[in-house]
Amino acid sequence: MSGNGNAAATAEENSPKMRVIRVGTRKSQLARIQTDSVVATLKASYPGLQFEIIAMSTTGDKILDTALSKIGEKSLFTKELEHALEKNEVDLVVHSLKDLPTVLPPGFTIGAICKRENPHDAVVFHPKFVGKTLETLPEKSVVGTSSLRRAAQLQRKFPHLEFRSIRGNLNTRLRKLDEQQEFSAIILATAGLQRMGWHNRVGQILHPEECMYAVGQGALGVEVRAKDQDILDLVGVLHDPETLLRCIAERAFLRHLEGGCSVPVAVHTAMKDGQLYLTGGVWSLDGSDSIQETMQATIHVPAQHEDGPEDDPQLVGITARNIPRGPQLAAQNLGISLANLLLSKGAKNILDVARQLNDAH
Rank of each mutant, 00 (worst) to 15 (best):
L244I: 01
P119V: 10
I110N: 04
K27I: 10
L134P: 04
G107M: 13
M212Y: 01
L154N: 04
D228C: 12
R225E: 08
G72F: 14
T190N: 15
G144D: 04
V215A: 09
K27N: 14
G308V: 13
I187R: 01
L42R: 01
H268S: 04
G131Q: 14
G218A: 05
A112Y: 04
Q296G: 12
I21E: 01
I166W: 12
L104Q: 08
I53L: 12
K43L: 08
A31N: 01
S344W: 01
F183C: 08
T269L: 03
T279Q: 08
H199K: 14
A270L: 01
H95S: 05
A151T: 08
A347Q: 14
L338S: 12
P208V: 06
S28R: 01
V235P: 01
L170Q: 14
A249I: 01
I166L: 11
A151S: 10
V316D: 10
E250P: 01
E179Y: 10
V23F: 13
P313A: 14
D352T: 07
V237R: 10
E82Q: 06
D36Q: 15
G192A: 06
I21S: 01
Q181C: 01
N169L: 09
G192H: 01
K348F: 11
Q204T: 01
R225S: 08
S165H: 11
D312E: 10
L42I: 10
Q356F: 03
S290I: 15
Q153C: 07
A44M: 04
G259N: 01
L220H: 03
F163V: 13
K272E: 08
V237A: 01
T298G: 03
L64K: 13
F253A: 03
N171E: 13
G317H: 01
S57P: 06
A331E: 04
K157E: 06
L285D: 14
V123R: 01
T298H: 08
A40C: 15
Q275H: 14
D240Y: 13
Q29V: 07
D233Q: 09
D228A: 12
G287C: 05
A249D: 04
K115Q: 11
G346D: 03
M196N: 09
G326A: 15
K62M: 10
R156T: 12
L177T: 06
G48M: 06
P159I: 08
N88G: 09
A270F: 14
P138G: 08
V301T: 01
L234T: 06
P106D: 11
H95M: 06
P159S: 09
L85V: 10
A303P: 01
T145E: 01
L254A: 01
D286N: 14
S337W: 01
N349E: 09
R26I: 01
T66S: 13
R225G: 01
L42M: 08
G197D: 03
G107R: 09
G259F: 11
I110R: 01
E117G: 11
R325T: 08
P138N: 11
G60Q: 07
V130I: 13
L68H: 05
D121W: 01
A339P: 01
R22A: 10
E242N: 01
I54H: 05
R251T: 06
V353I: 06
H268K: 08
R251N: 05
H120C: 12
Q296T: 05
L177Y: 01
A354L: 04
D233V: 07
K87Y: 15
A270D: 12
P138I: 09
I291S: 07
P105V: 06
P119C: 10
L232K: 13
S75V: 06
D178V: 10
C114L: 10
T279W: 05
L97A: 10
R195I: 15
D121Q: 01
P119H: 10
P127Q: 14
S146G: 12
Q229A: 07
L334W: 08
I336F: 10
H120V: 09
L338G: 01
I71K: 12
E293Q: 14
S290W: 15
L238F: 01
D36A: 09
T133F: 05
I54Y: 11
R355M: 15
W283Q: 11
G216E: 01
E86A: 11
H83N: 13
S141G: 11
N169R: 10
I186Y: 03
H199T: 06
E73G: 06
I318G: 07
D240N: 15
R321L: 11
P101W: 01
L170G: 12
G236S: 12
N322D: 15
I113Q: 05
L357H: 15
H300C: 13
K115A: 07
L161E: 01
E310T: 01
V237M: 08
T269P: 01
L341K: 12
R195D: 01
A249W: 01
P159V: 14
K272Y: 01
S284R: 15
R167V: 08
G287S: 07
T78I: 14
P47R: 12
G24P: 01
D233L: 03
T279N: 13
P309R: 11
M196S: 05
I187F: 09
N171T: 12
L276G: 05
F163Q: 10
H160S: 10
L100C: 15
G111R: 03
L161R: 01
Q296H: 14
T145I: 04
D352I: 01
L100T: 06
E162M: 11
N88Y: 12
G60F: 01
A44F: 12
G168V: 01
L351R: 07
G111H: 01
E179N: 12
L278R: 04
P105K: 11
H239G: 01
E242R: 09
